[in-house]
Nucleic acid binder design. Structure first.
Length: 576
RNA sequence: GCUCCCGUAGCUCAGCUGGAUAGAGCAUCGGAUUUCUAAUCCGACGGUCGCAGGUUCGAAUCCUGCCGGGGGCGCCA
């Protein structure tokens, strides 16, 4: 697998120096020596901190180690100079001409220098996964947006990706829902706003079950009838599923989210009994108080119930069946689940069981903090949810106001298109730009920030470049900037070029750590560097040659911004 | 009781596979537009990195304990 990103090139290079200077070091130690981006621009571009760590083993002063290693380094055209600083840091400054050559080389490269790291690997990504018959609310946005970014990142790296929307379509809510439907349904409302009506029915039925034991019992019987295949119940259930899917699809279209598979838990139901039988056969499952449980105390986990006393199956069983199906059908190397933090224990449990069954696929749980409201946790039952639909509407209308203000001459149809891209982008970026593992309190203003570190800032930077490109075409018709070389003389040009060089390692890291925020951070930094470059250096008014070089740099920045934002699922209009 | 996560500037957060003087945005204050989109740029102000120990040449980052907040823990998903 080709992996020619700059850190790898420099790490290999520095390793040769250490190998030559200290031939007694074992291979493992040598291979651990690496080069990373400098922590501060004043130190250079890249740095190697290995000398300090080797001081004890080599019984030498770190600076002396660094000096000997540097002295043993072969020529490297990427490197302009090395310097030993502080306690024994090896600071590396890149050669601007080599950098310019490299950037000219990737101008036509669709991947902008990113290697096909995931070639021949398959990954299933299980995300979004709303429950049928309940509207999508702000609690679903993070799984959908983060999952979709991971989906795009993996595809970009060449993985074969199966994005799977694992709908909650077989849970206990259907007993209450079917019972409620028979008593409370308003057919007109169902035709008008299907999911809202289903939710109303569910909430009403749930409330009654809290005070009416007979009602709850009846709901259980309805569920059993459904799960045993009663035709009338099946038909009704099918209708609930279809109505919900239509609603979900509207949201997914607006968010630009697309799945390869949309399979609910019900898809796997024929496997549930076999899973229990298998667990019993290998001695993992045992009976306790009438239920089937798997004891995981030795693994530091609690008991996991796999089958209820009444014969019903639990989530763990359904998830195990799903893994089994995916292994048989797709042979994935990895299955990634994107859910909120409350399910951590559940995933640890069923991952452990899968491991005990000898299933080889790597299982990864990417979790994020729960979204809360300033006053309290939201919940469907308490009725204080903020619907996703409303959130998206609000974002678009806020964006539209700003667009109208700043681009009053833009045709109205275009204003709407821009407002959609900006509004939805802002929402997505708000979720993608921070480490997901912290609890998030939802506020409208925060979710839709339109200045500073936000999607609109990045989109604005992109639109300015598009405008420069167009103006260049108008003023210098027929002129091709590529007739002139990319030349990096000014500090602002160099800084920008060095940022562009980092894109591949950033994409790789964001994917491998399952953290789109790493890419978001980078893009913001890139846009800031560009904005400063834009503000401080003339392009169109610069002399011929310099002008073209800067236009080329603009072009690369535009492509990097567009590609990066696309990986986050954020659109980049040419005008905003 | 057991367990997982969070605690960094007034507010919202990066940084946490250990590295040099801890960084952004917002807010506040000051400056920049006859010039390529000012949703911008340049600058200032602002910090006991929750507390206390420990490991290390070096700790916001790793370990232990404590405090504060949130989540989870046998028939929900």
């Amino acid at each position: 697998m080709e992996n020619n990103i700059i850190e790898t090139i420099l790490s290999n290079w520095v390793q040769t120096g250490f190998t030559k200077a200290f031939p007694d070091l074992d291979t493992e130690t040598l291979q651990a020596i690496d080069v990373s981006a400098a922590t501060d621009e004043r130190f250079g571009d890249y740095q190697c901190n290995a000398a300090m760590g080797l001081a004890r083993a080599l019984r030498m002063a770190p600076r002396a180690i660094a000096e000997q290693a540097v002295a043993a380094l072969p020529e490297q055209d990427w490197v302009q100079s090395t310097e030993i600083a502080g306690a024994g840091f090896i600071n590396i400054t890149l050669n601007p001409e080599r950098l310019a050559d490299h950037l000219m080389g990737i101008e036509d490269h669709a991947q902008l220098g990113v290697p096909a790291f995931g070639q021949d690997r398959t990954v299933v990504i299980d995300y979004s996964s709303p429950n049928v018959a309940k509207p999508m609310h702000i609690g679903h946005i993070r799984s959908t947006v983060i999952g979709n970014a991971l989906d795009r990142l993996h595809r970009f790296l060449g993985y074969r990706v199966l994005a799977d929307n694992h709908l909650g379509d077989w849970g206990t809510q259907f007993g209450l829902l079917i019972l409620g439907y028979h008593h409370f349904v308003d057919q007109d409302a169902l035709a008008q706003h299907p999911v809202e009506e289903l939710e109303r029915i569910y909430v009403k039925s749930y409330e009654r079950s809290q005070s009416d034991a007979e009602w709850l019992d009846q709901a259980r019987r309805e569920l059993v009838k459904l799960q045993q295949g009663d035709p009338a119940h099946q038909e009704l259930w099918q209708q609930f599923v279809e109505l919900s899917l239509q609603e979900f699809d509207k949201i997914y279209t607006r968010l630009g989210v697309r799945f390869d598979l949309v399979r609910g838990e019900s898809f796997y139901r024929d496997r549930f009994a076999d899973i229990i039988a298998t667990l019993q056969k290998v001695g993992l499952a045992e009976e306790s108080e009438g239920a089937q449980i798997v004891r995981l105390e030795d693994d530091g986990l609690d008991v996991c119930i796999v089958q209820k006393r009444d014969g019903g199956y639990n989530y763990a069983t359904s998830d195990l069946a799903t893994v089994q199906q995916r292994i048989e059908e797709f042979q994935p190397d990895t299955i990634i689940y994107v859910t909120d933090e409350r399910q951590q224990l559940h995933f640890k449990q069923f991952f452990t069981i899968a491991d005990k069954l000898g299933w080889q696929t790597e299982l990864v749980h990417v979790w994020f903090g729960l979204m809360r409201l300033p006053e309290a946790t939201f919940s469907t039952r308490q009725g204080n949810v903020i619907r996703l639909e409303r959130l998206l509407d609000e974002a678009e209308s806020r964006a539209l106001e700003i667009v109208k203000q700043s681009s009053p001459d833009m045709p109205e149809a275009q204003q709407l298109v821009v407002a959609r891209a900006v509004g939805i982008g802002a929402i997505k970026y708000a979720d993608l730009s921070q480490n997901p593992q912290s609890l998030v309190t939802f506020t409208w203003d925060k979710a839709m920030a339109m200045d500073g570190n936000s999607a609109p800032y990045l989109q604005y930077a992109y639109a300015r470049i598009a405008s420069v490109r167009d103006k260049y075409g108008e003023r210098f018709p027929g002129q091709d900037p590529r007739q002139f070389p990319l030349s990096l003389k000014e500090e602002a040009e160099l800084r920008l070029a060095k940022r562009l060089l980092r894109f591949p390692s950033v994409v790789l890291r964001a994917t491998q750590l399952y953290r789109p925020s790493i890419l978001a951070d980078y893009l913001y930094d890139l846009a800031q560097t560009y904005s400063s470059f834009y503000q401080n250096l003339p392009f169109l008014k610069a002399e011929e040659g310099v002008r073209e070089s800067r236009i080329r740099l603009c072009g690369l920045t535009a492509r990097t911004l567009r590609t990066g934002l696309e990986l986050l699922g954020i659109e980049t209009p040419d005008r905003i």
